[in-house]
Structures are given as C-alpha cells and as structure tokens.
Design a protein around this nucleic acid. Structure first.
Lengths: 340, 340
DNA sequence: AAATCTAGCGAAAACGATGTAGTAAATATA
DNA sequence: TATATTTACTACATCGTTTTCGCTAGATTT
C-alpha cells in the first residue's frame, strides 16, 4: 500500500537514487555487494517500479492496442487470444478497442492512440472504412500498425490474411460438386478486401463451371441484423431462389440458419450452406455446418510477432508484406449431396 | 509526426508553458483571448497531450484491467463488451488479461498491476484460486477491484452475479418437470462460488421433489477437455446412467452434445440437457439447447459502472455489496418432455 | 493618496525513473 | 613517485504535464 519508490529505497539504504536504480537494472557500474543489498531491500519493502515514469522517460509503453470491429465474433476472439499469448511472452500489455464497425468510432479511437499511449497497433478495419487518413496519421506519428483479416491495401505495412480468394473458390466449387446450380453469395461489405477476394473466388468458380453469374444472387448484407434477415428471407422465399449459399462470414450463415428454421426450409435438402466460420458449435448445429475455418489464433499470433519484432528493433516503419495463412475446409452436413 | 508538446506550443506562441497548459484546461486564470489563441494553435500544430506525463503527475491512468479466465467463452466476451461500452463513455481504457484458469498466472498478472498501471480492476477469478493474498495485495495498494460472475466471497468489495442458486434450482426442477428422475450435475470447479450455488440449487430441487441424491451424479469436471470427455462418456455409457444433465457452464453442455453425438445418444429422448449458456447458436443446435442465459452484457456493464463511480470519487475502498442480476431460462428442444 | 484587490500570466517544483557526466578513492602503469 | 586507469558511486538534467506560488499592472476601495 505504501507505494515505495526509488527515493524511499535510497533513503532506507543511505545511498543515492541513481545507485539504487542502477543496482536494480544490474548495471556494471555497481558493486556486487551493493547490488545484493539493494535487491534484498527492494524485495523487503515491496518495491515495484512506477510504469509511467519509465514510459515517460523512454517514450515506450510496452503496450499495444488491438482495434477491431466487434468482440462477439469467434474469429476475432481467437485472434486476440493468439496475440495475447505472444504479448505476454514479450512483456507487452494489450488495450482492446472495438469500433462497432463504425468508421467514426474507429477514427476517434485511432486519434486517441496518436499521442503515444501505445507502441503499436494490431488492427482489423471496420467494414465501412473507405478513407485512411486516420490510419496514415498513426503511422506518421511513428506508431507501427499491423493489419490482420480486414486489411487496408492502401497502407504500406505488414498484413496477415488467409487465402481468401482460393477459399472462396473452393467453397463455391464444393457447393457445385454437391449439386448446386444456383449459388448465392452473402457479402458482408463491398469495402472490405476480404469480401472482395472471397467474392472473386466465388465468381471464378462459377465461371470455371460455366454457371451464369446472376447479380441477384450477390446479396449485400450489413451489420444490421434485421435488414439481413429480410434480405435473406426475400432471397430464399421468392420464386427465383438459390439452391446453395456461400456466406462470407459466420454471422450471415447463422442468420441463414435462422431464416431457414422459421420458414421450414430444410438444409441441405432445399438449400446447401457453406460459410467462413470459427464456430465451435459448427459440428453440433442442425444440420452440422460445412465451414472454411481460418486459423484465427495463428493469424493473431503472427500479427503480434511481426509487430513485436519491429518494436524490438525500434523500427516504426514496417515494410509492406502480405502474409497468408491458409484456411481449412471442413465438410459437414449442410452441404451433403445425398439430400436432394 | 512531430510529437508536439506544451513547450513547442509555448514557444510558438511566445508565452509560458504553464499558460498553455492552463489555457487548454480552460482555467479561470487565463484570459479568453489567450485561450482562443492557444486552442487554435494547438489544433493547428496537432498537439495531443502525452498521456504518461499526466499519469505520472496525477497518479491516475484512466485505465482499468479486466482479468478473466479465458476469452473463448461467450459469457466473458459479452461481459467485456458491456464493460467496454461504459469505459468508453467515461474515457477509460481497458487492458485485457487472461489467466487461462491458472492460479499462478492469475497471481503474476495481479502482481504486475500492483504498481499503479491501472486505476482499478474488473475480475472473474480463475477456478482453482483458493488463496487470496494476491487479490488483497491489490486492494492494499489502493487499487479497487470489482468481481463479476466468479467472485471471491472472502474479499470485501462489490460483486456482481446472477441468481445462481435460484437458477440452479429452476434448471433442475425444469428437468424434473420434463420427466427426468436421475439428474446429473456437471460441476466446473469446487472452488468457485457460482458452481457451489448452482449445485446447491440442484440439490435443493432434488430434495424438494424427493429424489435421492446420488453422489455419483455430481461430476467434477475441469479445464482439461479430454478428461471431461472421458468423464462424461463414462457417465453416459455405463449401466448406472442419468436421464438428465444440468451443465453448470456452456462448455460442458457442448462436450455433452459431442459425446452424445459420437455415441449415438439421442437428446432429448435418451437424455435431456439444460445448461447455463450465452451461446448465440443455442437455438440452432441439434437439438436446440434449453439454456439459462445470464445477462452478461448487463453484468459487465454494472460492474464497470460501480468501479467508475468509486474511481470518480477517488475512493479506493469499495464497500461490500452483492448485486444480483437475474438470469433467464429459455426452454428449447433438449428438454422436450414429448420424447421419452 | 495609500491600501487592497484582482485578473492574467510566469517560474519552478513536483511526479518517478533513467542515464550522462562528474568525482573521489583505489589500483595499475611508467 | 607521479600519472593514468579503473571502480564504485553521486549529482543532476530529462521525459511532458500539472499545479502551487509569485509577481505585476491596473482597478477598486478607504
């Protein structure tokens, strides 16, 4: 409770503050005898250095921020876990900020980080972010940033993603192989590169298998769940309806399941579903959901590693780099070709 | 990029540092003219105060820590979201630490927080924590702590929980009303008060309905998933098996589902399942899972509110208080009495 | 006209740790 | 023996703010 500082320690030992400081940092300038005494006394008095004093002095806070759209998303949580593991190893602390997919909140958060509160940032941009001055400002301020998943091509730095195009291609092809002829794509946002790439994969697969691309089957969803339900319902209930759905994110697959449940659409008989997802319960759903699983933990891990590597070198400029960690497809009941 | 500080501003304006500081903080000592000039210049030069300098001076960091066992748990994520919302409103920042349910890691984390890095702590204790010196040390150091969910009765402070006993009672009674005669309880840890209370509710319900309590039906699970699978498998496959399971936490319900799936045990025909859970997919599982849902967001929200209330008053001692926010039971397919 | 007050500002001391430069004594070198 | 070097330590400036305490005009009171 006493908040012991170096001065207290110095007084108690009858030596100078600098000697105490150096002794504790094991400086060559200090004799072994003194070091031992200081360390013992520090232990005894329960000394623990004031972090902010050091930060002020060194202009380094041993803290990073993770900025992401939302927490209620298994992918992001696993990514945080991955980053946290590395951070803990390196003695870094993690500040969490969520943007709620709101561009303005994202900007406000980054502005708050400009003042040196953190040494670096891990970030997944919000889905409606289309301008990047606030991100550039951060880099200009000497705070390195590493993107993961929802990246910003326009910014030169390290970016960790999964093989979105190939996965999108594979997912779509899997639906085709399962017998689907009319495949819809549920898009999360046209601004996001991951969405764009997944959609490109989808289109490419349709092309390869000579399936005419139907613009009505590309559904622009949003963060508004109610509107998504309406859109998916309209898609699935009308006369012109798909026999397969490729959901770009987990949330949209669940919404699809919900809509199907309330409207008695049977998966996989009436509709096959595949989705990007890190859901633990994918296997336990009714029916079990065929997923493309991103290695979220590894992605968070890798992003943090790269950031810390540069922070250790005091290099605030991270060269442009695209790191891809492949996703894995797990085939389950929702795309079972038997039921048709 | 320039890292403008007060001194730079002062020089540019040809006035003193203190005047600039006071002008920016809207002090009565400074004239309106000067204030305007300073604010304009600050804007122009992109001044943003160094947070650590202020922290050092004020001994307040506007930062709190959330310490919890794990992130891959919907309850905790929702609680964080609830706390984050309030924190953002109050201009507080959130550091996240996970203990992995490891007592030693928990202790190490709290020790790191002793030095004043944070102004306060929100915490859910790890399930094997049975001694509390490290928690007391924090309070002794003047850092207030508020518990939520996995609380520590032994520490005097505010604690936010749900009505665990009543919910445990209700859950068990619901199984009984659904026709169960042999009900097992999956315990997460004997050290946790939430587990204890839920179990008490379970026992009380059995008592009320004159069902003999079978010690073999209280299964001590752990954080080791493999061992849990074994225990649940043993429980469900032997000759002396239950017809109902009450899982104290979501994770154990999912493990039960998994075991049932691999061993062709049909829920709810062979076994009925109810669980505490904040799973978004509860309704989409096969079969849909009857849950007791904790108001996780509200609990996190409330915990943060109480902490900030005391931080604002610079009161580091939070009086003992037990706040209970009720859970809600949602009856779904996994306890359907029709199937027997 | 002298005393008091007040508005508006500046100088300087914190906050706690770090590192540079300096110092005295002890040892090594010539 | 005189000089150079090493050893072990201390004084002090520094990081960027905040805040207390002065100080100086001018305004107001007596």
């Amino acid at each position: 409770m006493s908040k012991v500082n170096l001065k207290d320690l110095a007084k108690a030992l009858n030596i100078s503050v600098s000697t105490v400081s150096k002794a504790l940092r094991d400086s060559y300038e200090i004799g072994d005898e003194t070091k031992k005494k200081v360390i013992a006394k520090a232990q005894l008095m329960g000394y623990s250095p004031n972090p902010y004093a050091g930060f002020l002095r060194n202009q380094k806070s041993k803290t990073i921020a993770i900025v992401l759209p939302e927490l209620t998303n298994n992918y992001f949580i696993q990514a945080i876990s991955g980053a946290e593991a590395i951070a803990h190893e390196n003695g870094y602390h993690i500040l969490i900020y969520t943007t709620n997919d709101d561009k303005e909140k994202e900007r406000s958060i980054l502005n708050h980080l400009l003042n040196g509160r953190v040494d670096g940032v891990l970030m997944s941009v919000s889905s409606n972010t289309s301008q990047y001055e606030h991100i550039n400002a951060l880099i200009q301020a000497g705070i390195p940033i590493v993107f993961f998943d929802r990246i910003c091509h326009e910014i030169e730095t390290a970016k960790i993603t999964t093989n979105d195009f190939a996965s999108g291609f594979l997912a779509t092809e899997h639906l085709i192989h399962s017998g689907c002829k009319k495949i819809a794509y549920l898009s999360i946002s046209e601004h996001l590169s991951i969405d764009h790439k997944r959609k490109q994969g989808y289109l490419e697969a349709l092309n390869k298998h000579d399936i005419t691309i139907d613009p009505l089957f590309v559904i622009q969803c949003s963060t508004d769940e109610k509107s998504n339900i309406q859109k998916i319902k309209k898609l699935l209930i009308g006369t012109h309806k798909p026999d397969g759905i490729f959901a770009s994110v987990e949330r949209l697959a669940l919404t699809t399941y919900q809509v199907c449940k309330t409207h008695k659409i049977v998966i996989p008989k009436d509709l096959k579903v595949i989705s990007f997802s890190n859901l633990r319960t994918a296997d336990l759903l009714n029916p079990s959901l065929t997923t493309i699983t991103q290695p979220a933990f590894e992605i968070g891990n890798e992003a943090a590693k790269i950031l810390f590597k540069h922070l250790a070198k005091r290099k605030s400029i991270i060269p442009n780099e695209n790191i891809v960690i492949n996703s894995q497809i797990t085939i389950r009941g929702s795309t079972n070709p038997k039921y048709f």
